[in-house]
Design a protein around this nucleic acid. Structure first.
Lengths: 154, 154
DNA sequence: CAATTGTATACCCCGTTAGTATTGAATGCG
DNA sequence: CGCATTCAATACTAACGGGGTATACAATTG
């Protein structure tokens, strides 16, 4: 668990393909084809991506979608947030958080710290990073190298 | 989004309290009281925690639950996994992952790397860490300090 | 103006989450 | 030995949200 929704997953995949094409445009049905996703689903995802200014759309013949920025400047955090809204591990972490217990919960103000770190990891991983790293190798951006050392407790 | 389920959230809260009591035992209704959670819900959570060997239970008069290890040796990853199963951002990341697209998805083997990092963060954050850090201050375990620097791209 | 392509809305189904109730088993004490 | 206490196991229900689909609309281009 701790899943990202499928639509967000799709979004990353689509962005990845748009990145490889950039700056060329890709029509919606082409996207559906190349990603092997059903077209109606692609429609829904594209709306999110346009609204979040991650892709630029053009209508009419020879229209389609184009990644708004170089892949190195699009983070996974943005991609996920475009579809699912701000990243928040728990209710306490979200802006309009409405947790029943909040007032009397000892951890209500501790979670945001944990959340911040997870978000940072996703912010520091770009579409280009996804591309760069080998298959099944753990992706480790430079500032995170130490993370992969054996865990200290347990 | 990127939420952790409420039950997992509860689990962490409960573990936190058990940690503060350790090595004393705490009965289920006491747990419900101190956490302000409904008792039937606590019942459900406790089952997960026992099955995962994170707490030890004792029956009969003066029974109750006890944290199995010192709080510094219980990670958030374990707590969450106890309730929700192995952490997996996407289908590709889980053992029995059954993703429709998997064979033809260009990212199927990239996600696990990202997942690994997120998991590491949660593995490196213990119950004790939650306790140690001040309110609303981002919690930053030593090997993660560099993370909080400004993001490089975007 | 007509073909192409994206936009917007509204709908529904299904799974999961979360909350609850009930009955059963173990422990310890007098 | 038996009763009080406390955890264990199972099964059920309600509700919400994710995700998939259909359909009608608007813009651009040649």
């Amino acid at each position: 668990m701790l899943k990202v929704g499928r639509l967000a997953d799709y979004a990353v995949l689509i962005l990845h393909h748009l990145g490889r094409m950039r700056p060329a445009r890709l029509a919606m049905d082409s996207i559906a084809e190349v990603t092997h996703l059903p077209l109606p689903t692609v429609r829904k995802v594209m709306k999110y991506l346009v609204d979040a200014d991650l892709v630029i759309s053009k209508r009419g013949p020879n229209g389609g979608y184009q990644l708004a920025r170089p892949p190195a400047q699009v983070s996974l955090a943005e991609a996920i947030a475009a579809v699912e809204g701000p990243l928040a591990l728990t209710e306490c972490c979200s802006a309009q958080g409405n947790c029943e217990i909040h007032d009397r919960c000892d951890l209500a103000d501790r979670w945001p710290g944990v959340n911040a770190i997870v978000v940072k990891v996703l912010e520091r991983t770009s579409l280009a990073d996804l591309d760069r790293f080998g298959r099944h190798e753990p992706h480790v951006p430079p500032p995170l190298r130490e993370l992969m050392a054996p865990v200290r407790h347990l």
